[in-house]
């Protein structure tokens, strides 16, 4: 993308997600400004045509929650303290949704942050696991997402394995949860390899 400082396009299964980053840039809203570090703001949005039944444009409660969690999932990796009084703005647009868009959004956003030249400790990746038909499985498809018994989206910093996003809905025993978490992390590590390859290829050659 031309205008943004950094951008990334991710197709993950049938998900199509676009992420763009502006910043660090001057922050004009005084009451949200932090004097000693940058503020990472995020907006997750779904296109009206991204789902079967047209989604009304504009933010709803679900998008707002995902926006907040995405910002919190990415922030630990970014050296925010290097840019006092500024903002780093992350925009995620879901063009086609097939379940697991929040994870795809986070993975794309961290590529866009790297592309914008923003210093980071690690590149955050996200993947979901869940339970469907009594089985704990990795990366639920849309059908499993809706029919499944549980869904556990997870984001990690792959170098250290630290978890930066964790949600769960549905019912799991403690053992099943641990299994799901391990599977999600395993998925993250696989995606992380792809994510790094994508960046190196982009600037690749010489």
């Amino acid at each position: 993308m031309e205008r943004a400082d950094g951008s990334a396009y991710l197709e993950f299964g049938d998900n199509k997600v676009l992420a763009a980053v502006y910043g660090p840039r001057e922050f004009h809203i005084r009451r949200f400004l932090k004097p000693n570090m940058a503020v990472l703001r995020c907006r997750y949005n779904m296109a009206p045509f991204s789902v079967e039944d047209r989604k009304r444009p504009g933010p709803d409660r679900r998008s707002l929650e995902i926006s907040k969690l995405t910002s919190e999932a990415l922030s630990p990796a970014v050296f925010l303290e290097k840019f006092p009084r500024s903002s780093i703005d992350v925009f995620i647009e879901v063009l086609q949704a097939e379940g697991g868009t929040r994870c795809a959004g986070i993975t794309a956003a961290s590529v866009a942050l790297a592309d914008a030249g923003i210093p980071m400790r690690d590149m955050v990746v996200a993947c979901a696991a869940g339970k469907s038909n009594g089985q704990v499985v990795m990366d639920l498809s849309e059908w499993e997402d809706k029919e499944g018994e549980a869904d556990v989206p997870v984001a990690i910093m792959p170098r250290t394995g630290e978890i930066t996003l964790l949600q769960m809905d549905g019912q799991l025993t403690k053992d099943e949860f641990e299994q799901a978490l391990d599977l999600a992390k395993e998925g993250c590590m696989k995606i992380s390899e792809e994510q790094k390859k994508a960046i190196k290829n982009r600037y690749g050659g010489d």
């Binding site: 205008r3 049938d14 296109a47 045509f49 991204s50 789902v51 039944d53 047209r54 063009l95 086609q96």
Partner: peptide
């Protein structure tokens, strides 16, 4: 370009880019 939409297009003029989706109801 968007299979969830009944009709769709991606248009670029120079670096300007718009995605368009059509949904019937």
């Amino acid at each position: 370009v968007i299979k969830k939409a009944e009709g769709s297009a991606r248009v670029k003029i120079g670096n300007t880019q718009i995605m368009i989706g059509i949904k019937p109801q």
